[in-house]
């Protein structure tokens, strides 16, 4: 019983993520897509929780579900959906899609092939629960401070770019 439960959780969550992800990109109505996207993100948060990474799970929910997706919904609700539904659903970028997906699959296949014994199905870390917030903080602010700061700079640049694009007349 004890050993079956974790893999059961994993497969249930994985199914949830995959199904919702596929439904997300095939819905015609954008609001429905967002709702399915929320389900995908919740599943990922569940996977984090399954790995005893509570901090990541909570951040996943706060940032992605509580922040970014709400903004998606906000924008989509303002857009004229009837008009959008009449447009072609897939924009005919099949070649690029196939190339990207092929490259990703090749990479994944290569790694699974190379490190077959290194991969195993996700099992939660054993032992007692350690608060991992502190460990993440140490990793981010001490061991990987420079990459962390660079990433935040990148986000800042993207944000300024969006503001510049949105502004009609620059003084």
């Amino acid at each position: 019983m004890q050993s079956v439960l974790p893999s059961l959780f994993f497969y249930a969550l994985a199914t949830m993520i995959l199904v919702s992800a596929v439904v997300t990109i095939t819905r015609r109505n954008a609001v429905h897509s967002v709702i399915w996207l929320i389900s995908t993100l919740l599943g990922i948060a569940g996977l984090f929780l399954h790995q005893h990474a509570e901090f990541l799970a909570a951040v996943q929910v706060i940032v992605y579900i509580g922040g970014i997706t709400v903004l998606f919904l906000f924008v989509i609700m303002l857009v004229n959906l009837d008009e959008a539904a009449k447009k072609k659903q897939f924009a005919g970028q099949w070649k690029i899609v196939v190339i990207c997906a092929g490259a990703l699959l090749a990479e994944l296949g290569f790694f699974i092939f190379k490190g077959a014994e290194g991969f195993y199905f996700a099992e939660p870390a054993g032992g007692s629960l350690q608060p991992n917030t502190q460990l993440i903080a140490l990793a981010l602010y001490r061991d990987y401070l420079l990459p962390f700061e660079l990433a935040s700079l990148l986000l800042l640049v993207a944000m300024i770019g969006a503001v510049v694009l949105a502004k009609k007349d620059l003084k």
Binding site: E54, F55, A58, V59, V70, L73, M77, P131
Partner: peptide, 25 residues
Amino acid sequence: DLDIGLLFILSVSSMGVYGIALAGW
């Protein structure tokens, strides 16, 4: 008693907006 109790509260209350936004939509 969660280790991340405060984050739990923040994440749950951040999802509260969906009830209202989806009801409106």
